[in-house]
Amino acid sequence: MDLKQTLTHLESKLKEALKQTDKLETLQDIKAEYLGKKAELTLLMRHMKDVDAAERPVFGQTINAAKTRFTELIELRREALEAKRLEDRLNAEHIDVTLPGPDFRLGRPHVLNRIVMEIEDLFIGMGYIIKEGPEIESDAYNFEKLNLPKDHPARDMQDSFFITEERLLRTHTSPVQVRTMLEQGGRKPVKIICPGKVYRRDDDDATHSHQFMQIEGLVVDTNTTMADLKGTLLTVARAMFGEHRNIRLRPSYFPFTEPSVEVDVTCFKCNGNGCPMCKHTGYIEILGAGMVNDFVLSASGYDPSIYQGFAFGMGVERIAMLKYGIDDIRHFYTNDIRFLKQFST
């Protein structure tokens, strides 16, 4: 047999062997058999020295070509088998993409704290500091320094949980304002909001709660005006209830402010045209405010002939109830999971 015949024969044997195999593992054996150290082709190469010098280049080239050819054949087969193996694997990994994934639900901040954070952020942006204080307060800080002496009839408006004669659960976060002003020593301007829990003797029902959350604000400086209060509250109303809202200030009474006002926002349900939500008035009451009473400034170390200020206070539950249409204040404290899950972050 001449070389060509031998190589042709070897090639057809290789092809047959490749055809027979469907495993990548046996492909390795075939490669050794046809291209390895003991393969026929390798042995033929060793005969090179026996070939005429003139024919040697051709002989060598022929064998090298065959070697390349064999390698190609094996690689082709490998690729085919690898493709097949991948396909088999993928087939085996067929899943039902319509089945649901695990419930990796994130938790939610409580809606009251969410509103508090929203309002805090709004005021931080306007240069306010967030101040906090104790919930068990002295009568002096909760009432007396706020122009509510003992036996003042307006104390009825804030019926309280007393612990001792002189200590009680705060009925508003105003004592934090007093504390802050005293801290400032009557000289530096004050620009704060005070969020926190407060307590009043109310029977719990759909609209009353013996515990609730309040946010109060206070600005004291030499030139703080009622117009500043109005502009500030308009900003709050628009941030909380939409940019097209307007506000209305109505005369009211609080012992710690003078003038005192209640603040209404134009109804966000009917845009002020009148609907059951706003009792057909077009307005919804959202907070109380006013210019700080001189008595309060003096009691907290500020000279009222130099300083003046405004203060406001709002109930967080009320804001949340209006904003989300929540019908029962008790939901905030019952914490039914179905309630908690409704408020996205």
Binding site: I124, G127, I129, D221, T224, A227, K230, G231, T235, R248
Partner: peptide, 17 residues
């Protein structure tokens, strides 16, 4: 009170938590 303008306090302070 609707006669009053809407302004913001001129007190400058740094807001922060």
């Amino acid at each position: 009170y609707d006669q009053l303008p809407n302004t913001l306090p001129s007190t400058v302070a740094q807001g922060a938590l």
